[in-house]
Design a protein around this nucleic acid. Structure first.
Length: 429
RNA sequence: GGAGAGAUGGCAGAGUGGUCUAUUGCGGCGGUCUUGAAAACCGUUGAAGGUCAAACUUCCGGGGGUUCGAAUCCCUCUCUCUCCGCCA
């Protein structure tokens, strides 16, 4: 949620920045300014009346204490009459407040100055590439064929017990995934991120806090009986751990990491992009989240980008880093870098991480603040990134590392996986 | 699932209709003393809106009600704890 003060002070700047996200905010910003004026006027009027009432009520109390019952009764009548005039004021104020809030939460975050304009993924800017695309042996196949041949993942079993997009990892497939989770978590905690195991379901307030509600209502699984949402990413519970908190400046930055499954309905997805591990309803991800001093968030962003890049380098995967254009960025983000790895048999780039600075957009909703050295209350900046999304990393590893005798496991995973290669395994049910 | 008890400031914990403008303790911050520290003592210490600053308004789990006046009474929801039942 944008800060009202910013809209008040620089309405034209807000409109102009949101155009980079292809969002026409003219009408919304103008309504906000009008409603804000209206609200202030009503509030002033209401509060001065309330002050008067409060004073008389206090007098009544004193008169009662002195036993002056008649005078008190007279005052009571006076106050009841005044009170009826207050109701419409209160209602008007509540209405203006609600309308203001409703428009305010519908506005996306402003893109940072460095965000390139653009409408589609084609307008994203490649920041840099790394790693080397492999030369595959003849007869190389995509990961879904390898998954079958080596008995690593069973998509049909998943279909049976749940539905499409819920694969069952088997044997070495399950073990390799576990090895990666452990390696990624160790990589993050070594860099100072504190490990958490958060709940996988969150309430409405949490989903609102990070910006999933109301924007992405239909994209989350929802347990109607208890009104809980299955998390689409651990960013949601991790960031919300600090909701309604005033953090001590000396405790900054707050760095967190977690492994969790993630659940996404992916309503509207179809066709070739959903083949194999490319797009799932449930997938594993290791996430990093930071809450930092507002002046340090862009340094923190660069640090996180380098951190994820080092992780990809250690896995020896060909990757590229994109700076997303305004049109491809998420609702809550001020700037986003996407990491893609090249899945050699599909000949496709797959997004495996997205690192974003949300500035105060989330913390304003969640009221995560600190007191600066002047004693002034300020909102923190929140950032997060994947490190990493597992299925697509797995897809890429399988495809890129296949050779005649098996599939090579990257060196950094050898001790975690307790083997150097994948070999064909036993049959499933 | 059944029965009971609760939810008050960073934490503990008083307050059952009228200066509550929320007692007190701990913690935090500042100071005195000290070579320095501890102890002791003194002072200070919630948030939001509003204002140049103040005044002022709102907030005692959420929502609603009674009343001139609600932390306090009523309704309702949520959550927590204790006991019983079930259970990994």
């Amino acid at each position: 949620m944008l800060q009202l003060a910013l809209i008040r002070q620089q309405p034209d700047f807000v409109k102009q920045r949101l155009q980079v996200k292809n969002f026409d905010a003219s009408a919304a910003v103008d309504s906000i300014l009008l409603l804000d004026e209206k609200r202030k006027k009503l509030q002033l009027e209401l509060e001065s009346s309330q002050a008067g009432l409060n004073a008389i009520s206090k007098e009544i109390g004193q008169l009662m204490a002195q036993g002056e019952k008649e005078k008190a009764t007279a005052k009571k009548l006076e106050v009841s009459r005044m009170k009826t005039g207050l109701t419409p004021l209160q209602q008007g104020l509540d209405l203006a407040d609600n309308q203001l809030q409703e428009i305010l939460v519908s506005l996306p975050n402003l893109p940072a100055a460095a965000v390139p304009p653009g409408k589609s993924p084609a307008d994203n800017v490649t920041v840099r590439e790394g790693g080397k695309k492999p030369v595959l042996p003849s007869g190389a196949v995509p990961h879904w064929d390898l998954a079958k041949r080596y008995n690593l993942i069973d998509f049909e079993l998943g279909n049976k017990i749940t539905g499409a997009g819920f694969p069952v990892y088997v044997n070495q497939g399950a073990k390799l995934q576990r090895a990666m989770i452990q390696y990624f978590l160790d990589f993050n905690t070594t860099a100072g991120f504190v490990e958490y195991q958060p709940p996988l379901m969150v309430n409405e307030d949490s989903a609102f806090g990070t910006g999933q509600l109301p924007d992405k209502e239909g994209q989350m699984y929802f347990a109607t009986e208890d009104r809980f949402y299955l998390i689409p990413t651990s960013e949601v519970p991790l960031t919300n751990l600090w909701r309604d908190n005033i953090v001590k400046e000396k405790d900054l930055p707050i760095k967190m990491t977690a492994y969790t499954p993630c659940f996404r309905r992916e309503a509207g997805s179809y066709g070739k992009d959903v083949r194999g591990l490319n797009r799932l309803h449930q997938f594993d991800k290791v996430e990093i989240v930071q809450l930092v001093h507002p002046e340090k968030s862009y340094a923190a962003l660069e640090e996180m980008v380098l951190h994820v890049e080092r992780l990809l380098v250690s896995l020896q995967l060909p990757y590229r880093i994109l700076r997303l254009c305004g049109g491809d960025m998420s609702f809550a983000s001020a700037i986003t870098y996407d990491f893609e790895v090249f899945s050699a048999a599909q000949e496709k780039w797959l997004e495996v991480s997205s690192v974003s600075n949300f500035e105060t957009f989330q913390t304003n909703r969640m009221k995560i603040r600190f007191k600066d050295d002047q004693g002034k209350m300020q909102l923190l900046h929140s950032l997060n990134g994947s490190s990493l999304a597992l299925p697509r990393i797995l897809a890429c590893l399988l495809e890129n590392n296949q050779f005649s005798g098996g599939i090579a496991v990257p060196e950094v995973l050898h001790t975690y996986f307790q083997a150097r290669t994948l070999s064909p395994g036993p049959a499933n049910p």
